[in-house]
């Protein structure tokens, strides 16, 4: 595996160029969110586009665009809405889907195989193809522009059920047997013994759900049309469509919308990739 010097140079130059392509739009976004409009356009023709403004250039602090963005639109409200939406789905989704996954992994009951087949089959249904009748249903239920309407339709998740089932299949039965002998009820066994020992799969599912729903666009767009119910992904468009368009504010708002994802990926990426590769190799 010896490499010549030229080979090494070619490798690192290639890697660096690709890095520039992948990283610079992100850096441009971050850096521009700290500049004023004049600086953004002035710097665009040089490498300065990817460097933060000098402290001497900044008027009103590095975060003036952020302050203005939050003043111009109720960004805080959008973020809170997004958090309620995603966390609501995560909490209820973890309970409902883990229970279903546990049922399919542990208990023998009539039609168990049939239900597993149905659940896996629903994975193929593209959500995009049902959002219209789903909207009509939620409308009839009177749930338009409510958190209920945002959250409830997406609590049950076939993919999550499948992940939980796979995990619980490998869960050591002996622990549950021991608890049963001690007189613990099935519900008790599940919530007191199985759940606390299954943190990895709960983390994986929670992260997958967070990423999917924090980034959700179509459903919140349709169901949360009222301004007070908008999620961050819907609210972002305001900065793009309503003049005057301030590039600095746009970049600040985009950065704000990305921060939660950045946090999740920085600290919990391991679980996410684990979960997805797990299913990838099993399929």
């Amino acid at each position: 595996m010896k490499q010549t010097l030229t080979q090494k140079i070619i490798l690192y130059v290639t890697l660096s160029i690709i890095t520039v392509i992948f990283l610079f739009p992100l850096i441009w976004m971050l850096v521009s969110s700290m500049k004023n409009e004049f600086q953004i356009f002035r710097d665009m023709t040089s490498l300065k586009a990817f460097l933060p403004p000098l402290p001497s250039e900044v008027e009103g602090g590095y975060f003036h665009n952020y302050v203005e963005a939050f003043q111009r639109v109720d960004l805080m409200r959008y973020i809170v809405n997004s958090l309620i939406y995603t966390i609501g789905i995560i909490i209820l989704g973890l309970i409902v889907n883990s229970m279903a996954g546990y049922a399919l992994a542990r208990f023998k009951f009539p039609l168990a195989g049939f239900w597993l087949g149905v659940i896996i089959a629903t994975l193929i249904i593209p959500p995009e193809s049902i959002f219209l009748p789903l909207y009509v249903l939620v409308y009839d239920l009177g749930w338009v522009n409510t958190y209920t309407g945002l959250i409830v339709p997406f609590i049950a998740n076939a993919f999550a059920i499948f992940l939980f089932r796979q995990f619980f299949l490998d869960f050591p039965r002996e622990l549950e047997e021991a608890a049963k002998i001690d007189g613990c009820s099935q519900i008790g066994i599940f919530f007191r013994i199985v759940v606390p020992l299954s943190k990895p799969v709960f983390a994986t599912v929670a992260i997958v759900l967070f990423i999917n729903h924090w980034n959700d666009f179509l459903w919140p767009l349709v169901v949360a049309s009222d301004e007070s119910m908008r999620t961050i992904q819907i609210g972002l468009q305001y900065f793009m469509n309503d003049p005057p368009i301030r590039w600095g504010q746009v970049m600040a708002a985009l950065t704000v919308a990305t921060i939660p994802m950045l946090i999740i990926f920085t600290f919990l990426q391991r679980y996410y990739v684990q979960g997805l590769t797990h299913t990838g190799s099993k399929n």
Binding site: V96, M99, A100
Partner: peptide, 17 residues
């Protein structure tokens, strides 16, 4: 017990999917 654990997900999937 199996149905007790499975029912919430099944009902939700049935109604909303």
């Amino acid at each position: 017990t199996g149905y007790f654990f499975l029912a919430p997900a099944l009902i939700l999937l049935g109604i909303f999917l």
